[in-house]
Write a protein that binds this DNA or RNA. Structure first.
Lengths: 291, 291
DNA sequence: AACACCATTTTGTCTATAACAAAATAATGT
DNA sequence: ACATTATTTTGTTATAGACAAAATGGTGTT
């Protein structure tokens, strides 16, 4: 039913990777059409999506690819309960999650606005929004939410943050902090939360958005006379050449510019190039002084 | 300096394509590092980006790849002037373009709001916003705007449309029209403009956003009980398997559901599957009755 | 001249297998 | 307990040929 390109797009697993898994682990083995091309079944794609979810959470192919669906599901559930234990789910969080399940936009916006006013921007983002986003991600990873439902919620939160950001007045005329993600990383909630926190602190920001090619990053850096670049990496970001790319970036920008990287996609990394600094938690951003 | 993966990401031209161009047209011929891997220069990447721009505008590799930079620039300029002739640039349009050049967000929002109030939503979108977006695209294609500048403007217009959409009250409780783009197509302004027009007509809409995998489209269709799907394709969308994908979609949804496709990415296509209908102009959307 | 139909060229994607660097894990010694 | 080294795992790249789908050109018909 599906050619290898479709599978690549629907699962996020590259062609070469699919072929080498087929040879090494004996999965997925597609049937062939009359031209000898690989044709994958819908079931195989679903299994691959499940595998991808587990890989994104830090598992490794050798221990996943080739297992039966029920075995994979068991692993997924174990991981899911393990994650839930780490997360403190209070009443307010439950209310948010209810909105997500019911797809109730009106109620969600009401709750967001209410919580924002009650807690203030900083607390709201660190203690309410960030855990909420993590929870939604877990729900999706556990298969309790469809992708399109997760997208919908993500979009609503994005709109809320965008409108919040535009309402924060910034008086400072120091050089702006540049925010962006690398090509291949298309999650922007992390960037938006950081932008909020920085603007709240009075820091000028320029958010270049997601998937910014490196040459554009360098040019924007010159254009806006920025001294600080902030890059966000989600857990779904998998680029074996990340270190190389960070080195490239460090080479292309002047020495006095600092690059901060953050997000679960880089938290396991050690040894960064000079100029590049790892920020472990959202809170740390606030302690930084970019003057 | 750059490995083939970086080139793929920075230019949007796939690895296989780069290698086959090298074989066929003798460009780009990279040097090799000590491991025998292809290493491309920054200049080669810039040339490839220029070629990609021209390909997106309908030119063909055989007539481009291998030409010198000056020859490519000549072609680019010819095309640019040809496009400008087709476009009626009035005073208001010039004002908009000035904002784009000056990067003046405040003024841009002011102008957008003012024009929206003066012209009304329908005229605003069809006669002001759509030409503006085309013009910005042309300016980028002609190299007068950096990619990050174009992204910035696109983002501002996106925010403006999103906020406009959220302000339109919809009373109708008929089944919603589903809006989406296929994976590989990441332009959402087309979708947003259509969503505006439909909501203005009183039509309920659900915008699934960009790059929606087909299975998600099918599931959302069931979930929201939609009878109409609208897909948008920009000129940058190049997928040789588009016909196959539309066939797949037509197979996976019930017969009574219609799929409308639009945008410059499909305007040259002939012969669509049953259920799939081509809408040539934005205006046509308004004439449709989805009851 | 406009249009449909067929032949030819162009173009991108896919196949196959081997090779190897980079990342992750295990094993070792201090 | 921690750093260093060996081993395994894993993803990406290389090679060249094949071929379907798209684009182009040419022919004939209305």
């Amino acid at each position: 039913m599906f050619l290898i390109t479709s599978v690549e797009r629907d699962t996020g697993i590259g062609r070469d990777r699919l072929r080498v898994w087929e040879r090494r682990y004996g999965f997925p083995i597609p049937v062939r059409n009359k031209h000898g091309k690989r044709v994958y079944s819908e079931q195989q794609i679903r299994t691959l999506q499940l595998i991808k979810r587990l890989l994104d959470q830090g598992m490794h192919p050798g221990k996943l690819v080739g297992l039966s669906d029920s075995q994979l599901n068991t692993i997924s559930q174990d991981l899911s309960t393990k994650n839930q234990l780490k997360l403190i789910i209070n009443d307010r969080m439950n209310e948010f999650i209810d909105c997500v399940y019911c797809n109730d936009t009106q109620k969600l916006w009401g709750l967001l606005e209410q919580t924002l006013i009650q807690q203030g921007l900083k607390t709201f983002i660190i203690e309410s929004l960030a855990p909420l986003i993590t929870t939604v991600g877990d729900q999706w990873a556990a298969g309790h939410l469809n992708i399109f439902e997760e997208h919908f919620i993500t979009h609503q939160i994005t709109l809320f943050l965008d409108s919040t950001i535009s309402k924060i007045p910034v008086i400072s005329n120091t050089s702006p902090v540049l925010l962006a993600t690398f090509p291949g990383e298309n999650h922007n909630l992390g960037l938006l939360m950081i932008e909020c926190l920085l603007k709240d602190k009075g820091q000028l920001t320029v958010n270049l958005g997601i998937e910014v090619p490196m040459d554009q990053l360098v040019m924007a850096c010159q254009r806006y006379k920025s001294k600080v670049i902030l890059l966000s990496f989600s857990s779904a970001y998998s680029n074996s050449g990340l270190r190389t790319e960070l080195n490239d970036l460090a080479q292309q920008i002047p020495d006095h510019i600092s690059v901060y990287v953050g997000g679960s996609g880089v938290k396991k990394m050690r040894k960064f190039p000079k100029q590049v600094i790892l920020t472990h938690r959202l809170q740390n951003i606030l302690d930084l002084d970019f003057s």
